[in-house]
Design a binder for these strands. Structure first.
Lengths: 160, 160
DNA sequence: GCCTTAATCGACAAAAATAGTCGAATTTTT
DNA sequence: AAAAATTCGACTATTTTTGTCGATTAAGGC
């Protein structure tokens, strides 16, 4: 029962972009990569999912890069994670295309799994990426107002 | 975020054994295998973990087999699943041997993951294998009293 | 218009985790 | 002693995850 690196990297990318929302230019994959210690190529690849989901905007060519376009207090952790990893399903037979399990719809365990799955999703839906961002750097560095101009190094040591 | 087949098979093995607790002889891996549609070898292999955890008893030789030794209303789903899959940790850095993450103990995301992890474990701890067994076959077949002598086919279509 | 910058895309490769097999050895009953 | 069954370690196969690479496309600045 692990959240894969895709999901965690996606979150880190969002937190990184969050910390640079005040910047004049969009942030480069190279910058995100260095700051988050993920390879540049992989950042470019992963961030496409966030773009397709309408959370991040991408801009090609000179002065291009990435920036947040959807307010992060509107992006739940569930949305972010499912964007990266696909639907969260603790067992296969909960999937939309669940053709594989011919057992009865009254299947006790399945009903339990469904409930369990809903509870997990519920938890992840209660929190937004903004919440995570706030909890991330709200310590001795000061309040939220200082966060938008935090240096990379401050974030580097604070994220996952 | 999937429960692996190990965990689900383990649960199915327990439910199968639960349905045969009234039997005179311990249940053979062959019987469990056939009823649960898992290979006999794999059943034998998986069930060792349940034995080591003290949930199931094993008996070698003629008239040998497996049977429940720990009351299933004392075995939480968390215990059963962790027995099969090891500690449930949504992210690596929650592990006991978490030497891999040098980020600060005040790491916001990690604190969130820990809380999230605890909530998930809490849910799984609220239910026992007996609960699952009851919910499994409590429908039109009648109450719990009839369950101990249910045929395999009844269980086959009801589990997972 | 041309050059530079940067994201985009599809195919591919490596690594890790998962799932499952096999056969010889051991234990117990009859 | 024979038969029945679990046990154990090593081994294999499959799938999923985690990336990489190079060519392409789009935008900006001169």
């Amino acid at each position: 029962m692990r959240i894969s690196t895709k999901g965690r990297y996606g979150l880190r990318i969002l937190l990184d972009l969050a910390a640079h929302q005040a910047d004049a230019r969009p942030r480069l994959s190279r910058e995100i990569a260095k700051s988050q210690q993920i390879s540049e190529k992989y950042v470019s690849r992963l961030i496409l999912a966030l773009r397709d989901a309408g959370i991040v905007g991408s801009f090609r060519g000179a002065r291009g890069g990435y920036s947040i376009v959807k307010p992060l207090d509107k992006v739940t952790l569930l949305e972010a994670i499912e964007t990266m990893e696909g639907p969260l399903e603790v067992v296969e037979c909960l999937a939309a295309d669940a053709a594989n399990c011919e057992r009865s719809e009254t299947c006790g365990p399945r009903q339990f799994w469904r409930k369990f799955n809903d509870e997990i999703r519920g938890i992840l839906q209660k929190y937004t990426v903004q919440d995570l961002f706030n909890s991330c750097c709200a310590g001795e560095q000061g309040g939220l107002s200082t966060l938008v101009s935090l240096t990379d190094s401050a974030l580097e040591t604070a994220v996952d």
